[in-house]
Design a protein around this nucleic acid. Sequence first.
DNA 1: ATGTTATGCTTACGCTGTAAGTGAGTCAAG
DNA 2: CTTGACTCACTTACAGCGTAAGCATAACAT
Lengths: 220, 220
Amino acid sequence: MAKAKKPVKRRAALTKDRVLNAAVKLADTGGIDSLSMRKLASRLRVEAMSLYNHVANKDEILDGIVDKIVGEIEVPTVGGDWRVEMHRRSTSAHEVLMRHPWATMLIVSRANVGPHMLHYVDSTIGCLIEAGFSYTTADQAWNAIDSYVHGFTLQKLNFPFEPDEYAEVAKAYLPQIPEEQYPYLHGMSQEVIAGRHDGLHDLEFGLNLILDGLEELRGD
Amino acid sequence: MAKAKKPVKRRAALTKDRVLNAAVKLADTGGIDSLSMRKLASRLRVEAMSLYNHVANKDEILDGIVDKIVGEIEVPTVGGDWRVEMHRRSTSAHEVLMRHPWATMLIVSRANVGPHMLHYVDSTIGCLIEAGFSYTTADQAWNAIDSYVHGFTLQKLNFPFEPDEYAEVAKAYLPQIPEEQYPYLHGMSQEVIAGRHDGLHDLEFGLNLILDGLEELRGD
DNA sequence: ATGTTATGCTTACGCTGTAAGTGAGTCAAG
DNA sequence: CTTGACTCACTTACAGCGTAAGCATAACAT
């Protein structure tokens, strides 16, 4: 019998890309803590140490999946209306990061210089420069926007309750926020309980403050 | 011989407070990763499991040290000039968090309801309310400010170079930022190399944008 | 004197990242 | 057709982690 033209019983070749894809899937499913070399390997029907033929170590996996996620973010159009582009970029980043709850933490806690990240930053600076900002102001502007977006996203990801629970949660916790000790927290809780304040935090709120302020600093 | 009036050879009693103080010291010294139950215990000349007589688990330690750090932050004066108070609060928070590089990450990645944190938030909201902000706006304002301050601090903590290295670092990395691929990153690097842009990111920059914008939203 | 309680110690389990070495399969050159 | 190099998954092992379970000792209340 002739040999089959293509590998027959060879298992699907492991590649760095397959490793990273599986890693993202695993992190999305069970959180970043459940991303261990052993679990990841088992997902790929392979032993843990085999992964080291394709990545140097776990950090390289983390860098890789972060850059993959950054690649999902809508990049600003250089030459477009800077306000519109920065707004779109920010909401897109927030949405993407909410889809991958583990990702923001990694982005803010390590130096990211993957290709997607570099392109993302380059486009952002480019959009601001072409809109008349100086390099210095563009740098500060980009940093301020991302600081806010990342901080906001972390705050939201971390908040342990859903918006539709706020009122009942506030009611439940009110006894632990005595009015004499925490008068304004107490007051805030009562506003939420009474339905006069929905307790929602919008990305838009702070983002618009920043973007409004930036317009003042733009040249041309 | 009469028994000594007080315990003589009894080792210094372990308490939750001593545990937390040692934990802060350990984290300050070697980073949060070096804070393990075993190392912490050894610092206190005790075995790891003994710590569990004073804290339920490691999470309780993390909650405890975060609240200790929050206690170092200057709290806004209720009734003071809101702009001055928010500014002071933000710079103080940033300074404290820079002193304890491990703390910001913990603050943004877990629900913090320790006494210092509650007081900190209560004073912040109180200051804004007394300045004429509505509960809803105060809530959004506080959230926006903290999102920015925490995000900015993380960004800064994470940046792997010191300001006085920026120029030489930019020079060293320039070959990896080809002009055709990343024209604006390339341009930014050249600005830094040439000394026309110092590459510094100020907390003030974004903070003032936010505070300026908030003034517009204030009632009264 | 005798429990009772507090608190530190010992042992053990299952998990982690990864260093080091083994062995089976593929491919090119002799 | 054989041989040697190379690739890449496997096995084993180690030091570290948080913490459950049980034991030992010392101080205090009765």
